[in-house]
C-alpha cells in the first residue's frame, strides 16, 4: 500500500519555487493538519464509472473510486471496492481530496470517525448527502479531514444518495494501525500477518437503471426498494477457481479484516476453524469471543484472528449463502486464505 504523506506530496509537486518557501508552507500546513507532530495520510480519490464483468460474462456499469496521484491527474484505476486507505501506526489524521467524474454529486464519510458533517439538502428539505459534496466535474477538490483517527478497520463510503451510491460501488476500507503488528491497543489484537476481505454484492438490474438514466423521480425505477442482488463478491471478485488471498505463513497469527459493504448481514466461516473476534466497527471488543462463524452487520466491519493455521488453502464462505453467481451455484462470497 502506497502512503501519500503530506510532505512527500508537496515536495514532489514543488518544481521551481524556492525550497525555503516550501519548507515554510509545509510547516504551516503541518500546524493545521497535524498539531501533534503526527503525519497525515492524504489521498486523492476520484469517483467515476467503470465496467465490471460478472462471472456470468454480464457486463455491469459500476461506480467506484480511484486513487490519483493528485487532483486532476486521473491516473488511478477505478475499482470496486475502492482503494484501501491505510494509515501508518501513530497517524491520526486522514485527508481525502475528492474528485467527482460521476453524473451526480458524491461525498465521503468514514464510519466510526467522528467529524463535522455538513449535510446537503434537497429543495424540499430532505437530506440528500450526509456530508459536503463534490459536484460532477468539480474543478477544485473537495477536502475531508479527520484529525482523530483511531486504530481499526473501517469502511469509507459515499455519504450521498445512500440508497443508490453504496450499492453502485462507492465504498472501500480504511485501515489504521495501532502499532506494527497490533490492530488495536489490546493484547489479543497482535498479529504476524494480515489480510483484508471486503464483501460486496450487485443487483445488475438496479445498476442498469442507474447507468442508463432510468432511475429517478418519474423514471422507470424510482427507488431502490426492489433491490435484489445477484452477484456476491470478496474484494470485488466472485469465487474464481485458482484464486486465493495470501494470508501468511503456517502457524502465524493472522489478522483478517472484514468490511461488509453488502446491504445485508453476512456470516463468514473459515473452514470450520475457530477465530477470535477482536474488533467490531473499528473498535476493539472488550472480551474477544471464539467463534466458528463470524457475523458481520450490513455496513459493518469485524476483525478476527486466525491462530496457527496449517499450510495450505483455508476455504472461506458465507454461511448466509451468498454463494452464487447469478443463477449459477458455487461462486459468490467464497475464497481461500493461503498459508504457505
Amino acid at each position: 500500500m502506497k502512503i501519500h504523506h503530506l510532505r512527500t506530496t508537496l515536495f514532489s509537486g514543488a518544481k521551481g519555487p524556492d525550497w525555503l518557501l516550501w519548507v515554510m508552507v509545509v510547516a504551516l500546513m503541518s500546524l493545521f493538519t497535524a498539531p501533534c507532530g503526527a503525519a497525515a495520510a492524504e489521498f486523492y480519490l476520484r469517483a467515476a464509472a467503470t465496467t465490471m464483468v460478472m462471472p456470468t460474462g454480464e457486463q455491469v456499469t459500476v461506480w467506484g473510486f480511484a486513487k490519483d496521484s493528485s487532483f486532476g491527474a486521473k491516473d488511478g484505476v477505478v475499482t470496486v471496492p475502492g482503494p484501501v486507505l491505510e494509515l501508518p501506526p501513530g497517524d491520526t489524521t486522514l485527508v481525502i481530496h475528492l474528485d467527482n467524474d460521476l453524473p451526480e454529486p458524491v461525498s465521503i464519510m468514514v464510519k466510526g470517525l467522528v467529524g463535522s458533517m455538513t449535510p446537503v439538502r434537497l429543495p424540499d428539505g430532505r437530506i440528500r448527502a450526509l456530508n459536503k459534496e463534490a459536484q460532477p466535474g468539480n474543478s477544485e477538490p473537495v477536502t475531508y479531514t479527520w484529525t482523530n483517527v483511531h486504530p481499526g478497520t473501517m469502511m469509507y463510503q459515499s455519504a450521498s444518495h445512500l440508497s443508490v451510491q453504496v450499492q453502485m460501488g462507492l465504498y472501500g476500507a480504511v485501515v489504521a494501525k495501532a502499532d506494527t503488528g497490533r490492530a488495536y491497543d489490546t493484547d489479543p489484537s497482535r498479529y504476524d500477518s494480515e489480510v483484508l476481505l471486503v464483501l460486496g454484492e450487485i443487483d445488475p438490474d438496479l445498476h442498469q437503471a442507474v447507468a442508463s438514466g432510468n432511475f429517478g423521480p418519474g423514471k422507470a425505477v424510482t427507488s431502490a426498494i426492489g433491490y435484489r442482488p445477484k452477484y456476491f463478491f470478496i474484494n470485488g471478485r466472485s469465487y474464481t477457481p485458482g484464486v486465493y488471498e495470501p494470508a501468511g505463513h503456517p502457524g502465524q497469527r493472522v489478522l483478517v479484516r472484514i468490511v461488509n459493504a453488502c446491504l445485508t448481514q453476512r456470516s463468514l466461516v473459515f473452514g470450520g476453524r475457530y477465530v477470535l473476534e477482536i474488533g467490531d466497527g473499528g473498535f476493539p471488543l472488550p472480551f474477544p469471543p471464539q467463534h466458528f462463524a463470524v457475523f458481520i452487520a450490513a455496513g459493518g466491519t469485524k476483525d478476527v484472528i486466525i491462530e496457527s493455521a496449517p499450510a495450505g488453502d483455508l476455504p472461506v464462505w458465507d454461511e448466509r449463502l451468498g454463494l452464487t453467481n447469478g443463477g449459477l451455484t458455487d461462486g459468490g462470497i467464497f475464497t481461500y486464505l493461503r498459508f504457505q
Binding site: 463535522s116 458533517m117 455538513t118 449535510p119 434537497l122 430532505r126 437530506i127 440528500r128 450526509l130 444518495h161 445512500l162 440508497s163 443508490v164 453504496v166 450499492q167 429517478g216 423521480p217 424510482t222 427507488s223 431502490a224 426498494i225 426492489g226 433491490y227 446491504l263 445485508t264 452487520a297 450490513a298 455496513g299 459493518g300
Partner: peptide, 21 residues
Amino acid sequence: GTYVMYATQAQYLSNNEEDYG
C-alpha cells in the same frame, strides 16, 4: 451539526417507490 441515523440496508431508505425516505 446535523448527523444522520439510517438503516444500512440502504434499499429501505425509501418510502416504497419514493427515494430519499
